[in-house]
């Protein structure tokens, strides 16, 4: 494909997935040397369960970031959706149907957010900031602020019984989203909508349509992540997810090579980015490093990645690699 490879460095700079994977591998080696329990079954389970929620959410968030939008409210949809499933199931509806219904509600929330953003011209940062508070209030109101037990049956085992259920779902969703982004018209037009909105519109691409679709997608994936998490931890907590999981999802996307300016991004990079943040957090815990330090590291990692993204892009243009 590319005949003009100028060695490993050029390759790493051109492929953000490659550079973040390299960082991940280095971290794995460092933590393995620093702590003998790192590469053990129980710890790998912990790591994977740990980052699976924000890896899932990153898949939806990346599509939105690419088309030039962002969803800050997805962490609240993560908390609300399992409650809807709980109450619908409590009313006597079979659990599977309750789950589908809850996911439809999550999608509907995405539709509303997308509609307001696109048709009223409100920046999605503001729309979803409002939605974030609104949905959180909704969750607290319907739950009364107390956690409940997740309804359980065979379905629960399929969705959250196995120790690696969540990460398996995350990888599965990532593969599907990667295929959508790289191999369908939807993906291509999502990139066009974020890369050059005027140009894409002139070419006849329905930008509003694309954006609303991606809001629905992101919200639904957020709801799915919330349900999987509820099955996994066997309780539904009104304070689960929230801004924390949303910020980690966006951080994973950005570290993985998705531009906050829109127009470019990679799902697989986001998956690796999520894993790197998980490995970091787990490794620091094993080493006994203060939890507060983790936020410093995450913050610095995002800043460094953003600076290098901008700088490398300029450098790439100059040297044409």
């Amino acid at each position: 494909m590319n005949k003009r490879q100028k060695g490993l460095l050029a390759f790493l700079l051109r492929k953000p997935e490659a550079s973040i994977s390299l960082v991940g591998i280095i971290l794995l080696i460092v933590f393995q040397f620093a702590s003998p329990v790192f590469f053990t079954g129980p710890n790998l389970q912990t790591v994977s369960q740990f980052f699976a929620p924000w890896a899932l959410i990153a898949c939806g968030e990346i599509m939105l970031l690419i088309c030039g939008e962002v969803d800050l409210s997805v962490g609240q949809v993560f908390a609300l959706t399992p409650f809807i499933m709980y109450f619908v199931a409590g009313a006597g509806v079979p659990l599977f149907l309750a789950m589908i219904l809850a996911l439809l509600v999550a999608g509907l929330l995405g539709l509303c957010i997308g509609f307001i953003t696109v048709h009223f011209g409100v920046p999605s940062f503001i729309t979803t900031l409002g939605a974030m508070l609104l949905i959180n209030g909704l969750t607290l109101t319907i739950s009364g602020g107390f956690p409940v037990d997740t309804p359980n049956n065979l379905l629960g085992n399929i969705f959250g019984g196995w120790a690696y259920s969540e990460i398996a779902w995350a990888v599965g969703v990532a593969v599907v989203m990667h295929t959508i982004l790289r191999h369908t018209r939807w993906g291509l037009q999502t990139i066009a909508a974020g890369g050059n909105p005027t140009g894409a519109a002139e070419a006849g691409i329905r930008i509003k349509h694309i954006k609303i679709g991606n809001f629905i997608l992101c919200s639904t994936i957020g709801g799915l992540a919330g349900i999987l998490n509820a099955f996994h931890v066997t309780s539904i907590d009104p304070n689960a997810g929230g801004a924390n999981v949303m910020f980690l999802a966006i951080a994973s996307s950005v570290i993985g090579g998705t531009s906050l300016m829109g127009g470019s991004g990679t799902i697989l990079g986001g998956l690796v980015g999520a894993a790197v943040l998980g490995i970091l957090q787990d490794g620091f815990t094993l080493l006994g490093i203060n939890a507060y330090t983790f936020d410093i590291i995450t913050g610095a990692a995002i800043l460094i990645t953003m600076i290098s993204n901008v700088q490398f892009a300029a450098w790439r243009r100059r040297s044409r690699i």
Partner: peptide, 22 residues
Amino acid sequence: VYQDLALVNTLSVYHNMFLNRE
């Protein structure tokens, strides 16, 4: 063919050639 060029900078040459005619 507009002055601001209806090309998407972050897409490849052939994707741009087939934009919305994929």
